[in-house]
Design a binder for these strands. Structure first.
Lengths: 191, 191
DNA sequence: CTAAAAAAGCGTAACAGCTCAACTTTCTGA
DNA sequence: TCAGAAAGTTGAGCTGTTACGCTTTTTTAG
């Protein structure tokens, strides 16, 4: 790795670190991009060269490849396991794995939960994989790739993680969401 | 109705009309708010006084009360009809009723479909009623008002209309979405 | 090896949507 | 009638974001 790329990566990391620190200290809406750029000793233009998707992207630095994991969860699920069950397990595992990996991950989640713009951005990051996931589901079920039912299942499954954030018990809430997707609405009229 | 309120309503209408005309003529992103304000012969600040939710709100002027209709669809559904079925019928009826009411409604829908910012805004308008609808569903099923399953059903049902836009056959697509919510994912592995 | 040219970082200035403090106009009621 | 409250309007200015040009580094050609 050349000297140039190393400096580039260092600048990018300095920007992301400064942003996360300032955001958690004073709140997302109270910190401007010029201030973040100053803290990393670069100009605002440079910040946007490193993060073309804008201010929100500063928080979601690590862009791991979730798409492959999602498609694999559908394709390589064990016999007898339904598609919703496979996605459910995959999303649960992903979440707990991340919580245990980085101690700062809690602050990270709290920041996202309390900032509408970041929740929206997180949702859109998940939904970027909607098309690929829908295609994998359709292929598995022997339906055309743009089948609306498959698209709906992919869409709802990808939205589930964002939807259950803020619940008192997110894991149980996720159970309920995937129970709905797997078995349908089973509620009957009270009394 | 006093002279003052009439003038206010006239200004608001002039703004909405100018916006819709300019947007359909040249595209949403090609028209600035200052230009719209000029066309209505007011300043940009005045525009935001009339539409505090911003540029997108100019397009969704008529703010009919859908919340009551949604809650009523759940509460007053005929015996034997499930909650998803009731919501499905209600959303279908709402759509066709609007298409037949105003001939300009087609242009309106096309504008929304081709503008990501407007699609997002439409989605958020629907989701404003998520809490009320979830509470109505929970009440009907005898569950606590913040039950995650009820919240998920409300959320997915409200997102359905936006999700099926752009499909080749939106009505059939809506059938598939509500089949998923009513009966769960029934697909089995191909071959 | 060196000069040129291609690429990439960087800052200035600007434009977009949007808000704030102040000024005018219109309505109210004693 | 006429203060003063309420509502409407405005120009200046803030924030996220981008286009343009300048400088620096890297690659390439002879």
């Amino acid at each position: 790795m050349g000297r140039r790329e190393r400096k580039k990566a260092a600048t990018r990391q300095a920007l992301a670190d400064a942003a996360l620190r300032l955001f958690t200290e004073r709140g997302y809406d109270e910190v401007g991009v010029r201030e973040i750029a100053d803290a990393a000793d670069v100009s605002a233009t440079t910040l946007f060269k490193h993060f073309p998707d804008g201010k929100e992207a500063l928080v979601f630095d690590q862009d791991v490849d979730r798409e492959a994991a999602l498609v694999a969860a559908v394709r390589e699920r064990p016999t007898g396991q339904s598609v919703p069950q496979a996605l459910h397990r995959m999303l649960l595992g992903e979440h707990s794995r991340r919580v245990h990996a980085d101690p700062r991950f809690d602050d990270f989640l709290r920041l996202i939960d309390t900032t509408p713009a970041l929740r929206e951005y997180a949702r859109r990051m998940w939904l970027r994989h909607e098309y690929a996931l829908a295609a994998a589901i359709a292929d598995d079920a022997g339906l055309p790739a743009d089948d609306p039912g498959c698209r709906a299942l992919a869409h709802f499954a990808l939205e589930a993680p964002v939807l259950v954030r803020g619940s008192r018990d997110p894991d149980t809430a996720l159970d309920r969401v995937f129970d709905l997707l797997g078995n349908g609405w089973t509620g009957t009229r009270a009394d």
